[in-house]
Write a protein that binds this DNA or RNA. Structure first.
Length: 565
RNA sequence: UGCCCGGUAGUUCAACUGGCAGAACGUCGGCCUUUGGAGCCGAAUGUUGGAGGUUCGAGCCCUCCCCGGGCAGCCA
């Protein structure tokens, strides 16, 4: 599995320094192998994208490989559907899953043999006590643990019991296999950790072949070693597990030099949550529509929202890795999204909150119906190769409600009575009149157009202060547009009250149902992102026709100016 | 409470293992514009958590202190 190209140069980081030092010292015989080890009990989120970028990036940079290995040691929570979902997300992100992925469960037999080996070396024993008792005996911070009464069982008895655990002779939770290390150890991880637990559950791959399952600590380093992984990158909370990782490996006959675990800080973003349990709660409680809700930081959510995979990859590369806990501003991610979308997104006109504009001096044809003109407008002014599309123009149009004010404040450059503006790519128009309803709200604006300004520029060189988007009323497509705000209004959800749900923005999605789109949008394929001029980037839903999701707004300086006032 | 990890512009990261502290995002300013929102250009911002020490020279090495995070699942 190889890493896709990235436009962003990888910043140096401490992990790369370690790899370079190992290469120079001749450790691992010049090999570099990493692994990406998702647990198939949920979907990937952008935090995983950071790990993926590091795991694959480091391997690729030094001519090595990165193994995709599912860490499936807990049958209670893992499912094949998640395996498939994760592979799909990985492919979408741009990392081709070329061959069959690897699984920790492939090594269950080897792990079992090694466990017997440790028993033989008097480094592991079967404990008959229940979980609460073991937990109590473990002690606490600054408080030593006490040894299990079963700690010094004879080897033969341990072996017999362990084999019977495997054979399914005991109930769930009745016994465990523990490593025999040191109940006084400063590092809690070293106080005789659990290696195997009895589980009656059905495993997604080994089905009912096993009655005992290895714990993370007993499986992970050994899986790395079996695969010849050299640098095993994981997040900071495993720091204190590293001593145990090294301990297990030091007592086993390994096929390769023992791998190194290196920890880095997990990705956090402002205004969102990344923890799998919190994400699952949002889904379960119906606060969002599912794992692919566009407000979620899941890869499938971001995809549906219109975030380009390359923007996510560039972001992940750019932020690099460090050991300091850090929370990145969501704005940084958005800037990568805009940068990419500005380059590739086709421009279209869409009126989100329509107001009727009637051109009172618009001509009619021989039969008395209004003339229809067609203008060729650039698909992307930034890129001439994208060509043009044809947009119909007639005497009845829709403009954005915000773009007209009866009594405008100073510095309002859009349409108001007596003011001339440009309708993008068409004509200059001047507002002459407006119609209100019973409540006084403007329901229709009347204007005249200047035939000399066809195409949008005046032969006499006169200027207008504003260019507005528009859609022909007769040719408009009806659509719904979902406007998203941050799911959590607080920068750090839960910081104030301790419960992230207290910071949920109840209006994080506003659905506009009467939007009018130019007809070229009928050709847009599902999933594609276009720029609605002057408004933002919008992704057509993958499944539902004529439903657009706001990917991200344009950088809005006008809003900044208003805010500053 | 014991042990471990971390602390560099507002934010996130760099700084060739001791040699003039830089970049991006944000902010501010300017230019340009048939997207007021695209695009382009420029600027400001630091007691490198604090105090000592070693050194010709310390963000980097040493000591103490302060602050933040992690670890007491048969989760990963």
């Amino acid at each position: 599995m190889t890493a896709p190209e990235s436009a962003v140069p990888p910043p140096s980081n401490f992990i790369r320094d370690i790899v370079v030092a190992d290469l120079e010292a001749g450790t691992f015989a010049g090999r570099v192998t990493t692994r990406f080890p998702p647990e198939p009990n949920g979907y990937l989120h952008i935090g995983h994208a950071k790990a993926i970028s590091l795991d694959y990036g480091i391997a690729a940079e030094f001519g090595g490989v990165c193994n995709l290995r599912f860490d499936d040691t807990n049958p209670d929570t893992e499912e094949t559907s998640f395996v498939e979902g994760i592979i799909a997300d990985l492919r979408w992100l741009g990392y081709p899953v070329e061959s069959d992925p690897l699984y920790a469960s492939d090594y269950f037999e080897q792990l079992y043999e090694w466990a017997e080996l440790l028993i033989g070396k008097r480094l592991a024993y079967v404990d008959d006590q229940d979980g609460d008792t073991i937990s109590e005996q473990r002690g606490g911070f600054g408080r030593p643990g006490i040894e299990s009464p079963f700690r010094n069982r004879p080897v033969e008895e341990n072996l017999d019991l362990f084999r019977r655990m495997r054979a399914g002779e005991f109930a769930e939770g009745a016994r465990v296999l523990r490593a025999k290390i040191d109940m006084q150890h400063q590092n809690m991880q070293m106080r005789d950790p659990i290696m195997y637990r009895i589980r009656a559950a059905h495993h997604h791959r080994t089905h009912d072949a096993w009655n005992i399952y290895p714990t993370y600590d007993w499986a992970h380093g050994q899986s790395d070693a079996i695969e010849g992984v050299t640098h095993s990158l994981c997040t900071l909370e495993f720091d204190s597990n590293r001593e145990l990782y090294d301990w297990y490996l030091s007592h086993l006959p390994l096929p390769f030099e023992a791998p190194k675990q290196i920890e880095f800080a997990r990705l956090e973003l402002t205004h969102t949550v990344m923890a799998k349990r919190k994400l699952a709660r949002l889904v379960a409680d119906g606060i969002v529509d599912g794992w692919d809700d566009p407000r979620l930081p899941t890869l499938r959510g971001l995809r549906r929202r219109g975030y380009p995979a390359v923007a996510i990859r560039d972001f992940a590369t750019f932020i690099g890795a460090a050991r300091t806990n850090s929370r990145h501003e969501i704005e940084l991610l958005e800037s990568f999204v805009r940068r990419e979308l500005n380059r590739v997104a086709q421009r279209r006109m869409a009126v989100l909150e329509p107001l009727k504009l009637v051109i009172t001096n618009w001509p009619t044809d021989d039969r008395g119906s209004p003339v229809v003109e067609h203008f060729e407008i650039a698909n992307n002014p930034e890129n001439a190769d994208d060509g043009v599309r044809s947009v119909a123009f007639t005497g009845e149009l829709f403009i954005e409600r915000d773009d007209f004010m009866v009594d405008p404040p100073k510095k309002f450059f859009r349409l108001s009575p007596g003011v001339e503006v440009r309708l993008r790519g068409a004509y200059f128009v001047t507002a002459t009149d407006f119609v209100t309803d019973a409540s006084g709200a403007v329901v229709e604006v009347h204007a005249t157009y200047d035939p000399e300004t066809v195409g949008g520029s005046a032969p006499d060189g006169r200027k207008v202060k504003s260019t507005m988007h528009w859609v022909s009323a007769d040719h408009a497509l009806d659509a719904r547009v979902a406007l998203y705000e941050r799911l959590f209004s607080a920068e750090v959800p839960g910081e104030a009250t301790g419960d992230v749900f207290d910071d949920l923005d109840p209006e994080s999605r506003r659905m506009l149902t009467e939007c009018k789109l130019e007809s070229a949008l009928a050709e847009t394929p599902g999933g594609e992102v276009v720029q609605f001029e002057r408004v933002g980037y919008f992704a057509l839903d993958l499944r539902e026709p004529m439903l657009f999701h706001r990917t991200v707004g344009l950088r809005d300086e006008w809003a900044n100016i208003q805010r500053r006032r």
